[in-house]
Amino acid sequence: MQDSTVLTQPTAIHTTTKGQLWRSFGRMTWIQLKLYSREPIAFFFTLIFPVLLLAMYGIIWGNAPGSGYYQDYGYIDMQLPALTAVIIGTVGLMSVPVSVATNREQKILRRFKATPMRPLTYIAADVAVNYLVALVGMAAVIVVGALVFNLRFAGSLPAFFVGFTLATLAFIAIGYIVASLAPTARVAQVVGQLIFFPMMFLSGATLPLFLMPEGVQQVAQWLPLTQLVVLLQELWLGVGWNMTAVVVLLAMLIVGTLVSARLFRWE
């Protein structure tokens, strides 16, 4: 065999240690966060735009009990979880596909691939950052809602947090499918928009569904974003877990992860 004639250097083979993996992950996450904060447009859509929508709802409809459509709750109490769904959708279907596909198209991923860094380190950091961004986006609307509109919360905080986490990961997984299938960043962007924009208006995420015609309401039930809105609203108001929504989101998470694990390309 040729291999036996080849020089074996005296230095030990460096295996990547666990500590090393965490260090790479930490550094990667931190840098991705910094890069995100330098993207004014993404920043606006996930962190500022939802607050503006909230303010608009508050000014138009207020948050008096009964101004909403659910017992003693106000319009803002109902729409806050819906706005959270908009944030999750924006992160999963707009930010993720564009950023991943751009990094691939510009050969940024290619350079990463040439290092000992594990592919999973990059993806884990990217998911963590997008999750954090969604979390901060939600925190922003909650803070403004609480301070300005006397927001009411009747659910269990841990349950809402778990629901939020499941939903965010599920939408990011779908975003990764889009990123993996799209040949270019531009296509990823357009496909993300084609999926997200109709859902945003038809799911009750921006306007309550009961304002829509009967037919639209029927169709809307089938949209993943509608399921997300329902899940978060019912958790927020203390109704409990909507199992249909849980199943839909779990399915998205599992299918999304499996499919993108198969399709993901570094170049």
């Binding site: 460096h14 240690t17 260090r23 790479s24 550094r27 000992p116």
Partner: peptide, 8 residues
């Protein structure tokens, strides 16, 4: 700094 973190 980032690329340094990838190597032992």
């Amino acid at each position: 700094d980032l690329y340094s973190s990838f190597y032992t």
